[in-house]
Computed example of a mutant assay.
Amino acid sequence: MTTKKAWHVNGFLALLLALASIVGSVVLFANAGSETSGFPGAEPEVNGWFIFGGIVLIVVFIVLLTSLTIVQPNQAKIITFFGRYKGTITESGLWLVVPFSGKTKVSLKVRNFNSQTLKVNDAEGNPIEIGCVVVFKVVDTAKAVFDVDNYSKFVEVQSETAIRHIAANYAYDTFSDEQKPSLRGNADEVSQELTQELQTRLALAGVEVLETRLTHLAYAPEIASAMLQRQQAIAIIAARQKIVEGAVTMVESALQQLKDNGIELDGERRAAMINNLMVTIVSDRAATPVINTGTMYG
């Protein structure tokens, strides 16, 4: 099914014609028995033509009423005539369409679908909780109504299926030096891929996906504590590596400055100085110096 434009004309003219028809039928019925045979005291005779004309005007009134439809802004009306799709009206206003036709309302407004928090396994097999919001609108009314049973429910089911598929292709986070994409570190890339997959799935229902965004991302409760400890350990190791690199640079700079000033240290004193500087810089606590004042015996 593809959307096509339905036949429709200005409905206000048809409304005036309908009002004129009902007024004309009332007038004809009122004057149907006003004529007499011309003899004194004779009862009025019923004019069959007036009755027939009044009935015809009532039929015209009913036909015109069944042909009128109102289309609101950002709304469409699907016109069907005895089971056949005749077209769609997207212009707002009062319109005259095919008489005795079915008129199905379809909203063209932008809508949001906020998925439930789903529990899935990421690419590394870790259970995670994930949820997203999908912004969409109907662009093909015929597909939305005739090709799927309920396009709103169809969007919900396909969105959750796409989320599970995308989550299984990415790890929650990367704990190595390899620059692999992850759900936490590449949110824009994940959202773009989710949008493309959803658009492919929802094209059947005539729905256009405008945007998707992850609204919830966390480890499942059963592993959240262990993964938090893992993240803390990795952060501590990374920080220690930076501290050691800085300490080595500072020790090299100190030794070079002593050499430039003409102070030469032998191997033992050089090793002792390096040891003291490294302990002082790398330690996570303030260093307590020990001052050697000499011995009691000369």
Rank of each mutant, 00 (worst) to 15 (best):
T280E: 11
A162Y: 02
Y172C: 08
L64G: 05
P289Q: 06
I274N: 12
S67Q: 01
A218C: 05
L217W: 06
N275K: 15
F39E: 12
G41Y: 00
N10K: 13
I274L: 08
E129P: 00
G267V: 11
Q158L: 08
L183R: 02
N126S: 12
T69G: 11
A205N: 08
V251L: 07
K103G: 02
I58F: 07
L255M: 13
A6S: 07
I166F: 03
E91S: 07
T104A: 10
R164V: 11
N169G: 06
M296V: 12
L202T: 10
S115Q: 05
T141K: 09
I130L: 08
T80S: 13
I51R: 03
T66F: 04
F100L: 15
S92Q: 10
G54D: 08
N276T: 14
K109D: 08
V135H: 04
E43T: 09
N10L: 13
L204I: 10
E35F: 03
A239S: 11
L217K: 08
L13Q: 09
W49D: 15
N169W: 02
I55K: 00
E189K: 15
Q158T: 05
R201L: 05
D177I: 05
D149W: 10
D149T: 15
A144W: 01
Q231A: 13
K259P: 01
N275V: 05
S159H: 01
I62R: 09
M278Y: 14
T215D: 01
A123D: 02
L277G: 03
W49L: 15
E35C: 05
I236D: 13
N186V: 07
V23M: 09
L277E: 02
A272T: 10
A203Y: 09
Q257R: 07
V155F: 02
K109W: 02
N121P: 04
I163A: 06
M1R: 10
K109E: 12
N114G: 02
G102Q: 14
T280S: 15
S92V: 00
T200M: 10
S152M: 14
A233F: 07
N126G: 03
Q179M: 00
A205E: 07
A144P: 00
E197R: 11
Y85G: 04
L228M: 13
A123L: 03
L255K: 11
W95V: 08
V27L: 14
